[in-house]
Amino acid sequence: MLQVQVHRHIGTFDLDVRLDVEAHEILAVHGPSGSGKTTLINLIAGLQRPDGGRIVVDGRVLFDSAERINVRPEARRVGYVFQDYRLFPHMSVASNLGYGRHSGRSRVDFDEVVDLLDIRGLLRRRPRSLSGGESQRVAIGRALLSGPSLLLMDEPLASIDPERKAEILPFIRRLRDTFALPIVYVSHAAEEIAQIADRSIRIENGRLTASEPVLPPGNPTMPDTGLRLIAEVLGHDTGTGLTVLGSSLGRLFVPRRSEPPGTKVQVVVGATAIEPIAETGSGGVAVLPVRAVAGAHA
């Protein structure tokens, strides 16, 4: 879990933000250019120093002005994915991926990340020969492989062609589900946020002006939504780690939720996750990736 409370004054600009991000949560940060989004994650990463405040990750204090703690960026264990990739041009893709693993503190499995991001075929290439989408996947892999305790992403898709974005978004969603990482995702693209974030905050002129769960289904900015329904938490199966939901479609099994039984939740099934089964009534069971969203307007 990431807890941030920072302020910083630069010239006439004043940033003062407080936010919390859970593990397994993607927090989208949006707002107009110059509102302080990048400054915020630079402060978290240690690239810039807050004038005051406190930054804590999983109980580890990275910055505390009162206690005079300011952990150097190289010791913060933060993964940072930049808009401009920043791959090291003089190293192969494999060396780039391994760069953050030298200290031996990373327990992230190399092959798992390589397969997750589908970059095995690129390992021997040089960054110069990669497309934007490939570069960004390598950059994400490099950040993950350093064994970070949180992931910062600064407009990771901004310099990628629209067609290629679709190639990366699923990977980012998978990161959240595979690694228990809090993810802070800076973007000003509403579609991106709607597609991957769990919660979004808006920063304007250095101040947090809105914080809300990402509007799920039925939202016109979420074109890939195929199905939206309200379900009720029936119980948690500790054996399988699944939560059982009751819905108009019958019982749904989703990854463990924190809501107590009886809570109403929204269930979103992405359009791309729905595939017609050729023969109905054959007794086959369709297993769909399903995402449960808290705060149903039931």
Binding site: L47, F88, Y99, R105, S146
Partner: peptide, 18 residues
């Protein structure tokens, strides 16, 4: 590019390794 150097620091490199 000092942005590459910033990236290397975040990936855990102290001044000498950087």
């Amino acid at each position: 590019d000092d942005r590459l150097e910033a990236a290397a620091r975040i990936l855990g490199s102290g001044p000498l390794r950087l």
